[in-house]
């Protein structure tokens, strides 16, 4: 029998994978991918909780998360393209003009 805990653990594992991506990759595009994974991991948790408590609120949150993810992609990619046009690279280490 699959319980809520199964889903939540899966969600946690996926989130950790995303974390690895965020921490390890220096390619900005990869960072975006990793954030998408993280958001989806949370969506699974929301949907699972929604189901196991019989409450639609979780699904509602999942919808808004999707909306936010979509906006983030639109704006983020726009900025990424500008950056690429200016510097010819999407390496994270090139984004280092402000340092103490």
């Amino acid at each position: 029998m699959i319980t809520l805990t199964h889903y939540l653990v899966l969600s946690a594992i996926l989130f950790s994978i995303a974390l690895v991506g965020v921490l390890r990759r220096k390619n900005l595009l990869m960072l975006f991918f990793a954030t998408e994974i993280a958001l989806n991991a949370i969506n699974i948790a929301f949907a699972a909780i929604s189901k196991y408590y019989g409450d639609l609120t979780g699904q509602m949150f999942a919808f808004f998360v999707i909306a936010i993810a979509a906006s983030e992609v639109a704006v983020g990619l726009g900025l990424l393209i500008i950056w690429y046009k200016r510097r010819g690279t999407i390496d994270l280490d090139s984004l280092q003009t402000m340092h103490g």
Binding site: V22, L92, G100
Partner: peptide, 17 residues
């Protein structure tokens, strides 16, 4: 402590984690 503010996103993310 100023060294921490390297301006590198990757390092900042590591601190965040």
């Amino acid at each position: 402590g100023r060294v921490v503010q390297s301006g590198n996103l990757s390092k900042m993310l590591r601190w965040m984690v």
